[in-house]
């Protein structure tokens, strides 16, 4: 069942058309990656799922139920949310940030804290840092904490808005690996927003490439998109003409060595 966007559109009160006629289904336990240039409506689309944005046309369904029928607060508590920039509560300790939702839903504070410490460990944060305030952590650590907070209520759905946006490429890569590993264990239904096509290809089972106005340029698995970019915009966006996307093999002593567009070796074809 999962999440279904049914012909949704969003025009903000000031007349900005952020999304038009978007339809898409995210099967349970799968990851949908929304990619596109800045202002292409990714955040708007994602926030329709937890009703932080109400679509002006169409509807969003979770397991077949229109989210408009559900209580906003209860809906949001049942969905993990990682905002575009951390969004931790600056006046609460890291451990209490992670425990926010369980405490709201009535878990005793003590138990919620213990669970929060375990979650911190799980996302690769030393539980000793739990006593700190968010401002005392690095950007990458804050993002991990935000992921831990999103997982704390054991939601079936995770919404992640450029969760690794504020970190350098190496840390980002590490965080992506960690997310893949977590996802392999937990099997959440994930909507992930990113402007980084490589991140979308690494993390997404299905990728939607958006252009300005929330118009879909192409939808497909990473393989499908790489194999057949729909148009010039997509070719350009995925860097189809970049050296590292234009691989070919050359024969070296009977082995097929894969080289990129510049002729640099990438690996060996098994």
């Amino acid at each position: 069942m999962g999440i279904e966007f049914r012909d949704v559109g969003k025009t903000y009160p000031d007349g900005t058309v952020a999304v038009t006629g978007f339809s898409c289904t995210v099967p349970s336990h799968r990851t949908l990656a929304l990619v596109g240039t800045s202002g292409s409506g990714k955040t708007t689309l994602m926030r329709m799922v937890n009703r932080m944005v109400e679509p002006t046309t169409g509807s969003v369904l979770i397991d077949g139920r229109d989210v408009r029928e559900l209580d906003k607060v209860a809906l949001r508590r049942s969905i993990g949310y990682v905002p575009q920039a951390g969004g931790l509560l600056p006046h609460r300790r890291v451990v209490d940030n992670v425990a926010t939702v369980p405490v709201l839903t009535g878990t005793p504070r003590r138990a919620a804290r213990d669970a929060a410490l375990a979650l911190l460990e799980r996302v690769g944060i030393d539980p000793a840092l739990g006593r700190r305030y968010p401002a005392q952590l690095s950007g990458g650590q804050q993002q991990r904490v935000a992921v831990a907070r999103a997982l704390a209520a054991e939601p079936n759905i995770l919404l992640m808005d450029e969760p690794f946006g504020a970190v350098d490429p190496i840390v980002r890569r590490g965080l992506q690996d960690q997310l893949l590993q977590l996802q392999a264990e937990l099997g959440k239904t994930i909507v992930l927003v990113t402007h980084d096509i490589d991140e979308a290809f690494r993390l997404g089972d299905e990728v939607v490439i958006l252009r300005t106005g929330g118009i879909v340029a192409q939808t497909g698995t990473p393989k499908e998109i790489v194999a057949a970019p729909a148009d010039e915009f997509v070719r350009d966006f995925i860097g189809a003409d970049r050296a590292e996307r234009a691989l070919r093999t050359v024969d070296v002593d009977g082995r097929s060595v894969v080289v990129d567009g510049d002729g640099r070796p990438v690996g060996v074809l098994e």
Partner: peptide
């Protein structure tokens, strides 16, 4: 901090 308020609303604070 608007970011913190928005995130707090999004995780389900009334």
């Amino acid at each position: 901090d608007r970011g913190a308020v928005d995130a707090a609303r999004a995780v389900g604070m009334s």
